[in-house]
């Protein structure tokens, strides 16, 4: 494991256990998972279906609570926060990109992008906002409703929304899972650029080695535990590792 000082850690999970159900029917989605996510880094989480990737992401993002163990954003232990404070923490320090259904259908693209700020009653930083719009190529689509945008455009709007409040960390669960390879590549390139140029921290769950290869680092889960990691991955290396994991 890398040795980083605590201030370089954007989020971490300590011996996280998440159990669904009770007794014989109990499922351990996370079974003592430990992982750290470095600040300004692009980390991908991989693993077989059912290995607990989404669960880990949800627990780190404060959308779900661990059965035992601890999850931190920065140095805040999420278990100590009440619902209200968790909501505020998400609003101020966390961004999200989901696989689908990322946008509010009644709001246009621009309103969707600034939604977290509007909810908080804040004004966007205009320079930063224009810069994001510019890079994502959304300038001429701002007054469109989600239904009027293509899937790729919708995901880019979601990415813009995740970035606009300059959150400490962005969580993405298979953000390109529903996109064709070209749109997917555009989105991932942008996410990578956000990390490189603006030192944005991103944690992304994916199935696809090609997608994971955009990240700086990949961690592998199996049966709810951390099993391995890889720095500066390539698609082939990942595929290789996955095959060994499956075996």
């Amino acid at each position: 494991m890398t040795t980083q000082t605590i201030t370089d850690i954007a989020a971490r999970m300590d011996n996280g256990v998440k159990t669904y159900g009770e007794g014989d029917a109990a499922v351990h989605a996370l079974n003592g998972a430990t992982a750290e996510f470095g600040r300004g880094r692009f980390t991908a989480i991989m693993g077989p279906s059912g290995s607990g990737k989404s669960t880990m992401l949800h627990c780190l993002a404060g959308l779900d609570t661990l059965t035992s163990g601890a999850a931190y954003i920065g140095d805040v232990d999420l278990a100590t926060l009440k619902d209200k404070d968790l909501t505020l923490l998400r609003r101020e320090r966390v961004g999200f990109i989901f696989q689908s259904f990322n946008l509010i259908p009644t709001l246009d693209a621009q309103e969707n992008i600034v939604l977290p700020l509007t909810i908080a009653g804040e004004k966007p930083d205009t320079d930063w906002y224009s810069q994001i719009i510019e890079i994502l190529g959304l300038s001429d689509r701002l007054d469109h409703l989600p239904a009027e945008l293509s899937g790729g455009q919708q995901q880019r709007v979601a990415a813009a929304r995740a970035l606009v409040s300059r959150p400490a960390i962005i969580f993405a669960d298979e953000p390109s899972g529903n996109l064709d390879s070209k749109s997917g590549a555009e989105l991932l390139a942008f996410m990578r650029r956000a990390v490189k140029e603006f030192e944005q921290t991103i944690v992304m769950v994916t199935h696809d080695p090609n997608t994971a290869a955009y990240a700086d680092r990949v961690i592998f889960l199996e049966d709810g535990v951390f099993v391995d990691e890889m720095h500066d991955p390539t698609p082939d290396a990942i595929l290789d590792r996955l095959k060994r994991l499956g075996a």
């Binding site: 959308l63 209200k84 909501t87 989901f98 990322n102 946008l103 977290p116």
Partner: peptide, 16 residues
């Protein structure tokens, strides 16, 4: 349901 979940995820409080 999904929409409300999304709003909550991006920081809308229960009160809102």
């Amino acid at each position: 349901t999904q929409e409300i979940g999304l709003l909550r995820a991006v920081g809308m409080t229960r009160r809102q």
